[in-house]
Design a protein around this nucleic acid. Structure first.
Lengths: 144, 144
DNA sequence: CGCTTATTGCGACTGAGTCTCGATTGCCCT
DNA sequence: AGGGCAATCGAGACTCAGTCGCAATAAGCG
C-alpha cells in the first residue's frame, strides 16, 4: 500500500506541478489494493464526480511510471495495467484471481540477467519480469 | 532461425489445416531474423501480392503463439511483437537496436520464481521475462 | 468425387491511447 | 499580494491495433 501523499511529494520533488487532477489521481491510486487500468481510474473519478479527462489520466500515469511510482505491466490477457509501488522494487507478483500484487525484492535476478548476457553475448541493459499466480488469501479461499 | 517447414508441421501435428495463408505466413515468419509485428507481416504479404487479410494474420499468430512456435512480447516502447522460437526456450533477449533476438535457456529462473513464491506466499504458476540490450553485432558496429 | 466443417475474406466495428489547441492555473519573482 | 509565464488541463476529434460476424471457400476425410 502506498499513500497519496507519497505520490504527490514524489511529483513535487521531481519538479512537477501539484495540480488538482494530479492530487485527485494520487488519491485514487492510493486506495487501490491491486492493479488497475487507466479505465478503472477514469471510471472511479467519474463516480466521484471529479472532472478528470481520459487524456489527463493517461498523461499522469505516464509521468508516474517514469518516476517509478507506478509500474506498467501487461496481464496475461494482454490488458495493460498499473500497480503502485515503492521505487525500489522493480518486479511484481500479481494474483491472477484477485489482482492484488506484491513487490518483489530483487533476489538474484540482476545476477541472472548478467549471466544470460554472458552466455548470449548481449549487453543486457534492461529487463522486465512479471510473475503470475495465486496470493495466499486466494489460495486459502479456494481451499474452502 | 526457424524454418517454414517446422512451423507448418507444428500446425499439422496439432491438427490444424495446412491452408495457403498459413503456409505463406510460415514462410514470412521464417525469413524474419528478429522480432516482428502483425503489421510487419501484413505489409510484407502485401508487398509480395499474397492475398492475406489482417484478420487472418492475427488469427494465425494466435494459433502459433498457443502452439509455442512464436512468442508474444511487448517491447519497452509498448509495441506488441512476436519472435519465432524453439518451443523449449521460454524467454528471449531482444536487441534494442536491430531487433534480432536470441532464445535463452532457462538458467535458474524457474528456481528464482519458486524462491520468490516462497518469500511472498504466492503460488506462482506463470511468469514472463523479457530482456533488452545490444546484440554482439550491434555492439561491434557501435564501436566503429 | 462429394461432404463436412475449419478457415478465410471482407468490411464494419471497438476501444485504448494520442493529438491539437485554446483555456486554466500552479508557481516563481518582485 | 499580484502579475506573468510556462506547464497543465479539458474537450473532442482522431488513429490504429485488434476483433467480430457472416457468407464464401477449400482442406481433408471417406
Amino acid at each position: 500500500m502506498v499513500d497519496a501523499l507519497g505520490i504527490v511529494s514524489a511529483l513535487g520533488v521531481a519538479g512537477f506541478r501539484l495540480t488538482g487532477p494530479r492530487r485527485a489521481l494520487a488519491d485514487l491510486i492510493a486506495t487501490r489494493s491491486g492493479h488497475f487500468t487507466a479505465e478503472d481510474l477514469l471510471a472511479e473519478s467519474r463516480r466521484r464526480r471529479l472532472r478528470i479527462t481520459r487524456a489527463t489520466v493517461f498523461r499522469s500515469l505516464d509521468v508516474l511510471a517514469n518516476l517509478g511510482v507506478v509500474e506498467r505491466l501487461e496481464l496475461p490477457s494482454g490488458v495493460h495495467a498499473f500497480v503502485a509501488c515503492e521505487p525500489l522494487h522493480h518486479h511484481h507478483v500479481v494474483c491472477s484471481s484477485c489482482g492484488r500484487s506484491t513487490g518483489v525484492a530483487d533476489e538474484g535476478l540482476e545476477r541472472l540477467a548478467q549471466s544470460i548476457g554472458q552466455s548470449t553475448g548481449y549487453r543486457v541493459d534492461s529487463h522486465r519480469l512479471e510473475l503470475f499466480g495465486r496470493c495466499p488469501e486466494c489460495q486459502e479461499r479456494e481451499r474452502a
